[in-house]
Write a protein that binds this DNA or RNA. Structure first.
Length: 263
DNA sequence: TGACTTGTTCAAAT
DNA sequence: GATTTGAACAAGTC
């Protein structure tokens, strides 16, 4: 699922393929993904325009336009990007296609259509208005500690709450807590300062490494859960057996014998 | 066939 | 008012 590292890669992908090219035709095949704007408005804003750069906050990608602000992309569960020659067959789940003047097309694909697309004037204001927390790679350890030491929910739930810190999703939260040997159901404010600092350090280092490898799971083999979220696996650390549990309405995988529960 | 999954949002509860 | 809980959303996968 697209979490912070995947979204960072999507930004890189756009910068590599799609900057400074005139957008000639916009095709929107599924207006369902539009958030607060009409198809006409999106088309008008993009046609004749150009991408200049990208920036990311948590799982949100903002594509800077030459004129009139930013195109905001959120990839939901199944959002993806595909850049191809315009005479090739478009991808199956294309939701938005931008045909560039140079004969290439950038498609936003989304099979389950939980992604979101809109136009944004001011990125900072957008983030503030929606109440998102700092990006997981931009927050300091002290800020992290302050936020997590007052929350009374499961640490996994808190890590995934985009209003506390932005960017961590279900899969990475399982890995972070596995690396820290902390049970995902442990209550955030019951953890010691040292434990919270450890979680902070792991969060940053796992995300950074994933970003470095373009979120390719095959290059993150020394982690355990990232590509392998299942119950009944043998824990590589203590030979216990991994378990499944729904925590905060989300699936959680962990090793109950070496990830300690603090309640 | 229908249960399951996922990130976000929103409503309800505390 | 702030925080927490839990359902809803869409639709492919198994």
């Amino acid at each position: 699922m697209p979490e912070l590292p995947e979204v960072e890669s999507f930004g890189k992908y756009i910068r590599k393929t799609s900057l400074h090219k005139k957008i000639e035709v916009v095709k929107l095949t599924s207006p369902l993904v539009l958030q607060g704007i009409t198809a006409r408005k999106l088309t008008q804003a993009l046609e004749g325009n150009m991408f200049e750069d990208t920036q990311r906050h948590g799982k949100f990608l903002f594509v800077e336009l030459k004129k009139n602000g930013y195109l905001m992309l959120h990839f939901g569960l199944t959002g993806d990007l595909e850049y191809f020659r315009s005479d090739e067959t478009p991808p199956r789940f294309a939701v938005l296609m931008l045909h560039f003047a140079d004969g290439h097309t950038l498609a936003f694909t989304d099979s389950r259509k939980l992604g979101k697309i809109t136009l944004v004037d001011d990125v900072e204001k957008f983030i503030e208005k929606r109440g998102y927390g700092k990006d997981a790679l931009k927050i300091s350890d002290d800020e992290f500690l302050k936020l997590f030491s007052k929350r009374k929910v499961a640490i996994k739930t808190a890590l995934m709450n985009q209003k506390i810190i932005a960017g961590v999703g279900n899969e990475f939260s399982d890995e972070i807590l596995f690396q820290c040997k902390i049970h995902p159901e442990s209550v955030s404010n019951k953890l010691s300062e040292a434990q919270l600092r450890k979680i902070y350090k792991e969060t940053v280092s796992i995300l950074k490494e994933a970003v470095k490898h373009n979120a390719e799971r095959s290059k993150l083999e020394h982690y355990f859960f990232l590509d392998n979220r299942k119950a009944g696996l043998k824990c590589p650390r203590c030979k216990g057996e991994t378990e499944f549990k729904t925590i905060g309405g989300r699936s959680a995988y962990f090793c109950p014998s070496c990830q300690k529960l603090y309640k």
